[in-house]
């Protein structure tokens, strides 16, 4: 039995201004992965490659243990997707759009779909162009959840969603993975409450993988470090990422807090970081380098 819902290996894609370079990570079934990185890091490119919307220049992608190009149709039966922008037909109503999509899926359930419409407060007869951005995302999510998918892929799903619904999504996604056979991958460039339920975090920057690990181990190994500027000798600098110096001191992030603690003896503040801290300092570090 295949344990990985998604496996990306040495994935490559080159554009004039941007290269996705040998990206590798995997996602086991039963878990939720947050795919983070600044705008333009390559998150959407990666998702488009998984969905085979663009052609890869190298590497492999397998979904449910199947090749994402060779077994494309079979895989897509089992994927629910939510994109950051609306690509449904503006001219149609929710029900009409559903009528177009539903016949493509073997596992489509009108009952589920109607339940989600009700839960999400989506009026079935409303035209897509009359929906707010948040409602469009909700509609997209309702479609993704109504065909018995095993893998939900969401590209920047939280943009345009209010905090109340974001919290609802946490419940929906957590319920989705209750049976241990399904998985969720969502990308985001701002860290939100969605990360609360993420089991794994894959962080890319400039088309390169920074890390792909359990969220717990990342938050345990990374730390926010603050102190006076006089402490910043070469040895300390080497252990830090994205150092920000101001007139009164410095702030930075270390990726190995244990090592940093054992090597560094002095007056320094070591704090638990947020994912946003880690992302911010790492991106800054790569820009300065």
């Amino acid at each position: 039995m295949e344990n990985n819902i998604l496996e990306v290996k040495d994935l490559k894609k080159s554009y004039k201004e941007f290269t996705l370079n040998n990206l590798s990570f995997k996602l086991e079934k039963g878990y939720i992965m947050g795919f983070i990185g600044p705008n333009g890091a390559g998150k959407s490119t990666t998702i488009k490659l998984i969905m085979n919307l663009i052609n890869r220049d190298g590497g492999e992608i397998s979904v449910f243990g199947l090749d994402n190009i060779k077994d494309e149709r079979c895989i897509k039966q089992r994927i629910g997707f939510v994109y950051d922008e609306n690509h449904f037909y503006d001219e149609l109503s929710i029900t009409e759009m559903k009528g177009i999509i539903a016949p493509f899926y073997k596992g489509w359930s009108d009952k589920d779909f109607e339940r989600y419409l009700k839960d999400f407060d989506l009026p079935p007869r409303k035209k897509i162009k009359e929906l707010s951005k948040g409602m469009k995302t909700k509609f997209s999510l309702a479609v993704a959840l109504s065909h018995d998918a095993d893998f939900i892929i969401m590209d920047e799903p939280t943009s345009g969603l209010d905090p109340v619904f974001r919290s609802e999504i946490l419940d929906i996604l957590a319920s989705f993975i209750q049976d241990e056979k399904k998985a969720v991958l969502f990308s985001t460039h701002i860290t939100t409450d969605l990360e609360k339920i993420a089991d794994y975090i894959t962080f890319i920057n400039n088309g390169e993988l920074v890390f792909s690990e359990t969220k717990d181990s990342i938050l345990e190994n990374y730390a926010l470090v603050k102190g006076g500027k006089e402490l910043l000798d070469d040895g300390v600098r080497r252990e830090l990422v994205g150092i920000r110096e101001n007139n009164y001191g410095f702030e930075a992030v270390t990726s190995d807090v244990k090592k940093f603690r054992s090597q560094f003896k002095g007056d320094i503040i070591i704090e638990k970081p947020t994912l946003e801290d880690i992302m911010l300092y790492t991106v800054r570090g790569s820009k300065n380098a």
Binding site: M51, K76, Q77, N86, H87, Y89, D90, Y105
Partner: peptide
């Protein structure tokens, strides 16, 4: 023109259809 305006090729190609 409507396919193009809505960029719906993205949706169509995300569906299980060749």
């Amino acid at each position: 023109a409507l396919d193009d305006k809505n960029r719906s090729e993205i949706i169509l190609n995300s569906l299980p259809v060749k």
